[in-house]
């Protein structure tokens, strides 16, 4: 779940926008370059975006009795790397902010930072670390790690904005509360997402073995 509209003070909104915007712009430039280099990249970019769209529209129930949705960034990050993923995620987040009142325009920077940048980046690290060992395991881990890390970052962002009391200790106490809400709910959802990501990536690989991963 993304941070709701108006739920971060203006200074925090500005801070996360400042961090996220350069990455999204670089990602957009990379997308342009990928298409110029090989027009066939368009279809894989579309599939990556499609996966983000489908998965972030699915509100799944979880063990905690509440619902949350996957992020779907695993496929994009494996095929194109973190910066392109940041750009694609910002499209999905913009759609949800404008049409669904889910997330928000003011919190778009913060949500792009968690879902589009840090989450996929850690997923990418997991993929790089495991890909020599086994490709399906690397796919699975990348998707699960990208999903879970997104919600860990969301929890930290909320904790920074709403510490239980002033000072760093208050931030930690809030962080533990928010992690209790998001991370535990997200755990089984991340596993479901990872299975779907592996299935899609294996299909892509089967149809076009020449597809290179990032």
């Amino acid at each position: 779940m993304h941070i709701m509209e108006g739920f971060l003070k203006p200074e925090w909104c500005a801070f996360w926008f400042a961090l996220a915007t350069p990455v999204v712009i670089y990602g957009a430039w990379r997308v342009k370059r990928e298409i110029e280099k090989d027009p066939k990249a368009k279809s894989l970019l579309a599939v990556s975006l499609g996966f983000i769209f489908v998965l972030s529209a699915l509100k799944l129930p979880s063990v905690t009795g509440s619902c949350s949705h996957p992020t779907g960034t695993g496929v994009a990050v494996i095929l194109f790397g973190p910066s392109v993923t940041a750009f694609l995620s910002s499209i999905a987040l913009l759609y949800q902010a404008l049409l669904l009142a889910h997330g928000g325009i003011t919190t778009l920077g913060a949500n792009t930072f968690s879902m589009g940048i840090v989450g996929p980046f850690f997923g990418f690290l997991a993929y790089k670390a495991l890909k020599k060992f086994s490709l399906p395991v690397a796919f699975f881990s990348a998707a699960a790690v990208a999903d879970l890390t997104t919600y860990v970052i969301t929890s930290l962002q909320l904790a920074l904005a709403f510490p239980a009391f002033p000072g760093i200790e208050g931030v930690w106490i809030s962080a533990i509360r928010f992690l209790g809400i998001f991370a535990i709910t997200q755990l089984p959802i991340a596993v479901v997402e990872a299975f779907l990501a592996v299935a899609l990536l294996r299909n892509i690989k089967a149809y076009s073995p020449e597809v290179s991963t990032a």
Binding site: M1, H2, M4, E5, G6, F7, K9, P10, K59, S62, T64, S66, C67, S68, A97, A101, G104, I105, T106, L158, F162, P163, A164, S174, R177, F178, I181, F182, T185, Q186
Partner: peptide, 23 residues
């Protein structure tokens, strides 16, 4: 939704917080 639960937690942590922008 987990976001509604988070919203309640925010209100509990900072009862004075008013969202400054609405969709």
């Amino acid at each position: 939704g987990a976001d509604e639960i988070a919203e309640d937690t925010i209100k509990e942590l900072n009862p004075n917080y008013e969202p400054w922008f609405s969709p």
